[in-house]
């Protein structure tokens, strides 16, 4: 029974982390990097739920954690999209390597 095994879920979460890492490094646009970040956050939530289901005595804590991760991910995505707009308006590009000057 692969679906009733802690290691399956942990392996899926680890794979999501590595997919996100790969995308974070090789995407050429800020939006692509944001997408990869969301994958990593999803893996973290899955991890919490798996530990909650198989190891923890309190059934609610993992669900609460996963819900909070979802809320924070939504806030983070909104902030990131608006920051990308601001960067785009100032630099007229969304390539992270061309956004490279600091000014007060």
């Amino acid at each position: 029974m692969i679906s009733y095994n802690l290691y399956t879920y942990l392996a899926v979460a680890g794979a999501l982390l590595c997919f996100g890492l790969y995308g974070l490094m090789q995407h050429r646009s800020l939006i692509g990097m944001l997408i990869s970040t969301e994958l990593i956050l999803n893996g973290a939530g899955l991890n919490f739920m798996a530990f909650n289901r198989f190891l923890a005595p309190d059934p609610a804590i993992g669900q609460v954690f996963a819900l909070f991760i979802m809320g924070l991910a939504a806030a983070e995505a909104a902030i990131a999209v608006s920051l990308i707009f601001a960067v785009y308006r100032k630099y007229h590009t969304s390539d992270p390597e061309r956004v490279n000057d600091l000014r007060g």
Binding site: Y9, V12, I35, Q63, M70, A74, A78, V81
Partner: peptide, 27 residues
């Protein structure tokens, strides 16, 4: 779908509502 297997249909619904419904649409 994996959340369904982890005994939490509510979290599965929230995942679809928040991630697929809100975050993806915003991106």
């Amino acid at each position: 779908g994996l959340y369904l297997y982890l005994n939490s249909p509510f979290l599965a619904l929230m995942q679809i509502l928040i991630y697929v419904g809100a975050v993806c649409i915003m991106i």
